[in-house]
């Protein structure tokens, strides 16, 4: 794959991530379900990782993490590192332990969302900011509602995946 192909491929992936980012930031949080709005950017990182593998997943996770840290309040770089790690793990898991398809993406997404909320819960428990029940009352509906969006997010990136050069040389 030429450098130009490489740039076009990841440019298209980045463009596909933008509507997902804007949807999460400015639209879906206006219509909470069960009192929560969904997390879409981790799903985007996982979807690309499942389709493209660990290295590309890590790179795309880094990009989505930077977007999240730029837009979210009080994340202090946590999303950059977190989503990069999630991309690497999802890519490796789907390739070596699961399958590089929707089922693999569903499992990896569930793992990613659980990991993110587990960190959030742990931080708040250590700060003694709230009891575990109150934290779970936010985390569980958040994970459940976010999982609903795995199919459309995976569908979007699968559509992109089918139209871009397959072999990635980083």
């Amino acid at each position: 794959m030429t450098r130009s192909d490489f740039m076009i491929k990841w440019g298209v992936y980045a463009l596909a991530a933008l509507p997902v980012w804007l949807l999460e930031l400015y639209v879906l949080n206006r219509f909470p379900v069960l009192g929560v709005s969904p997390m879409l950017m981790p799903l985007a990182a996982v979807a690309v990782a499942v389709l493209e593998g660990a290295t590309a997943g890590g790179g795309f996770g880094l990009f989505t993490g930077i977007l999240c840290d730029a837009a979210y309040h009080d994340t202090d770089g946590g999303m950059t590192l977190g989503l990069c790690l999630i991309g690497v793990c999802a890519g490796a898991l789907s390739r070596y332990a699961l399958r590089q398809n929707l089922a693999g993406c569903l499992l990896c997404s569930l793992g990613a969302l659980t990991a993110i909320d587990a960190v959030r819960i742990l931080v708040r428990l250590l700060q003694r900011a709230a009891p575990l029940e109150a934290l779970l009352a936010v985390a569980l509906p958040e994970i459940a509602w976010s999982m609903v969006f795995v199919l459309p997010v995976y569908g979007l990136f699968y559509w992109v995946f089918q139209r871009v050069p397959k072999k990635t040389v980083l």
């Binding site: 840290d69 202090d76 770089g77 950059t80 590192l81 070596y96 990635t168």
Partner: peptide
């Protein structure tokens, strides 16, 4: 995971750690 390390995976992880640190600072 050999592919990961061969294909600049470590570089990406290092970049993520550095960027996260810069953002936090």
């Amino acid at each position: 995971m050999k592919d990961f390390f061969r294909n600049n995976g470590l570089l990406i992880l290092t970049a993520a750690v550095l960027l996260a640190l810069v953002t936090a600072v």
